[in-house]
Design a binder for these strands. Structure first.
Lengths: 322, 322
DNA sequence: ACCCCCAGTTAAAACGTTTTCATCCTACAG
DNA sequence: CTGTAGGATGAAAACGTTTTAACTGGGGGT
C-alpha cells in the first residue's frame, strides 16, 4: 500500500504539496498539480482515512444506539438515518443494546474510546449520569437533561387522536395498554394524551401497564382481557402490541372491530400485511430520522444548537380495526 | 483529554511501561504496575483507540453491505451479525446500498479508504471485477469467484420442500414467482430446486419472473393471475412477495388455501401477524449470521479459510396457507 | 535598480500509540 | 566474589497524514 510519501517522491514534490492537491486546499501550480495527479493515478494511491482521522483527532463515525435493529420501527429509522448520514459524508455504527442498561453503558464507553463523532441514542434506562460525555448526542423519544437534544413524534397529540378515533368508531369504554417505560421517555405522553382527552370527553377509561419491556406479552394481554372484559376500545402503545392484542382477543372470541376497536402507534411499514389492517397513529419516521441527523451534525460541527425538543406531527391512518 | 504521556509522567515511568500495563503484555513489577494504575485512575485516562488503530494499521470495523436494513430478513440478520461481532470485539458499520450497483461500488471504495477489517456483503449486482480488494469478504447468498466465501441457506432443498408441501396440500398445478435475481445469486436455486422436484414428480409447473427488484409487484402479480388462472399452488421467492400475492389473490376472489396454496421463503419474524399465517421455508438466520461472522474473523486473523460455500439447512414452517 | 510581497513550495513537527533495542538491576550459579 | 541470565525499564523510532513555519523566485511598484 502506497503512502503519500511515495506519491511525493514519484512526482518529485514534497508531501505537503501532495496533501494540498488531495484536499484541494491552498494554491498549487497547475503543472505541479498535474504531476501529482499523474503520480496518484500511477501508484493507485488512496488516502489513508485512518491516518487522517488520527491526525485530525476526529472521525466521521456516528453511532446509532438502540435496543434492537430487529424491530420494524427502529430498522426503518436506521435506514433513513444511514441515508442522511451518508449524504453528509458520515458513516453509521450500529449498536444493539438489547435495552439493557449495562450494555448501553458498555457501548457508551466503547464509543468514547473510539472517538465517534456523535451518537444518536434510543434508550429507555436510567443512565442519566453516565451519558454526559463530551460527545455530541441526540436522543430519540427520550428527554434527558439540558445538553441533549431530543427528537420525538407528537406523542401527546397521538394519544388524543387515538382516543377520539376510538370514540368516533363507537367505543365508549376504552383502555390504554403498554409497557410503563422510563419516566423520561416521551412515549409516556401517548398515555397522557389519551387520558387527557378521555377525561375531557368524559369517556370511562382504564390503563393497564407493566414494566417495559413486557416480559410475556401474551400472558399480559390475557390478564388484561380477563380483568376488563367490558372494554370495547383499545389503544396499544405500539403496533406490535396492537397486533398481538388482536390475535389473542380474536382467539378468545372477540370480533375486531365489531366487539372491540383497536388503534396502534408507529405505522410500521408492513402494516398492510397484518390482517385485519391495523388502524394506527403514524410517526413520520423519515422526517424524524433526518431531523435527528441534522441536529447532530450541527452539534458536531460546533454550531450551538439552541436546546429544544423537536416534536414532529403524527397522522392517523385508518385501517380495518376501528 | 489525557494521553499515555501524561500517565507516564504522573506515574514517573516511561510510556512503554504504561503501554505494557494497559495491554497486559510483557512483564512489569507489581509496584510499578500499581503506580501506573493509580495514575490512570487519577487522570481518568482512556486509551485512544483511533491512535491504536492507526499505529497497528488495522481496525475492528466490519461493514455490513446490504440493499436495505429496512427489510425484515436483513434486519434480523444484521441483529445477529452485530451481536456476534461484538462478542469478538468488533464493531458493525452499516451500509445500505439500495441494491444499486454504483452505490455498492461507492461503498466498497469508502470502506477501502477507511481500512475496515472486513466486509459482509449481500449484493445482487455484477460487480465481480471490482470486489477484489485485499479486504477479507464473506458474501451471503451470493457466490463470487474463489476468494470469497459464501454463506447461504439450502435454497435448492428449500425449493424442493416447497414443491412437495404444495403437492401434499393438494396442489397439482404450481407456479414459482419471483424476481429473476443475478445469475450468481444462490437464491436462484430456490427456483431450481422447485423445478427439479416438479419434474421428478411429474407435476405441471410454470415460472413467472421479472428482473429483480420487481418494479411494481402489484402489477406483476395481477399479470400473473390473469395469465395463469389455473394455478392452484404458488411458491413465492420471499415471504413478502407471498404476502402480497395472497393479498391480491384474495381481492380477485381466490380463497387461500382452498383455491390456491401458498408457500413463501425466509420465515421472517413477524410472520405470525400476517393473516392468514404464511406457510414458509425458514432460513436459520441466526446461524447464518454467526457463521458468516466467524468465517470472516478467521480470514481477518489470517487463518486461511479453505474455500468453501457454507450451506445451511432450512426447515418448513406450516402455516395456514397450505 | 531596488525592495517588497505573494504565490508556490518544502522540511519538519505533531497527533498517541506500540514496539524495538539498549541499558540497568538483581539474583543466582560457580 | 565474579559472571551472567534474564526481568524490568525507558528512549526513540515508526505508523501516514495535516499544518506550520521557513524559504524561494519572480513580478510590480517605486
Amino acid at each position: 500500500m502506497h503512502s503519500i510519501k511515495d506519491v511525493a517522491n514519484l512526482a518529485g514534490v514534497g508531501v505537503g504539496t501532495v496533501s494540498r492537491v488531495i484536499n484541494n486546499i491552498g494554491s498549487v501550480k497547475p503543472v505541479t498539480r498535474n504531476k501529482v495527479i499523474e503520480a496518484i493515478r500511477e501508484l493507485n494511491y488512496v488516502p489513508n482515512q485512518v491516518a487522517r482521522n488520527f491526525k485530525m483527532q476526529r472521525s466521521y463515525l456516528v453511532s446509532l444506539l438502540l435496543p434492537s435493529i430487529f424491530n420494524q420501527f427502529f430498522s426503518e429509522l436506521a435506514y433513513h438515518i444511514e441515508d442522511e448520514l451518508d449524504r453528509n459524508g458520515y458513516q453509521l455504527l450500529l449498536c444493539n443494546s438489547g435495552g439493557k442498561p449495562e450494555k448501553e453503558l458498555y457501548y457508551l464507553d466503547m464509543l468514547k474510546q473510539n472517538k465517534v463523532a456523535g451518537i444518536i441514542g434510543i434508550t429507555y434506562n436510567d443512565i442519566e449520569e453516565y451519558i454526559h460525555t463530551d460527545i455530541p448526542i441526540v436522543s430519540i423519544d427520550r428527554h434527558f437533561s439540558k445538553q441533549i437534544t431530543c427528537v420525538t413524534s407528537d406523542n401527546f397529540e397521538g394519544g388524543r387522536i387515538a382516543l377520539k378515533e376510538l370514540v368516533k368508531a363507537g367505543a365508549n369504554n376504552v383502555a390504554f395498554i403498554g409497557g410503563a417505560t422510563s419516566i423520561n421517555s416521551e412515549t409516556r405522553n401517548r398515555k397522557k394524551g389519551f387520558i387527557h382527552e378521555a377525561e375531557a370527553m368524559g369517556i370511562p377509561y382504564v390503563v393497564y401497564e407493566e414494566p417495559d419491556p413486557i416480559a410475556d406479552d401474551i400472558a399480559f394481554i390475557k390478564r388484561f382481557l380477563k380483568k376488563y372484559p367490558e372494554v370495547n376500545g383499545v389503544f396499544a402503545i405500539t403496533d406490535m402490541l396492537a397486533a398481538k392484542y388482536i390475535e389473542i382477543a380474536k382467539r378468545s372470541g372477540l370480533r375486531v372491530p365489531e366487539d372491540v376497536k383497536v388503534i396502534g402507534y408507529d405505522g410500521i411499514q408492513d402494516h398492510e400485511y397484518f390482517h385485519p389492517v391495523l388502524s394506527t397513529i403514524r410517526q413520520p419516521v423519515e422526517q424524524m430520522a433526518r431531523k435527528a441527523v441534522q441536529l447532530l451534525l450541527k452539534k458536531i460541527e460546533g454550531e450551538s444548537v439552541e436546546h429544544e425538543d423537536f416534536i414532529i406531527a403524527v397522522e392517523y391512518w385508518q385501517g380495518e380495526t376501528t
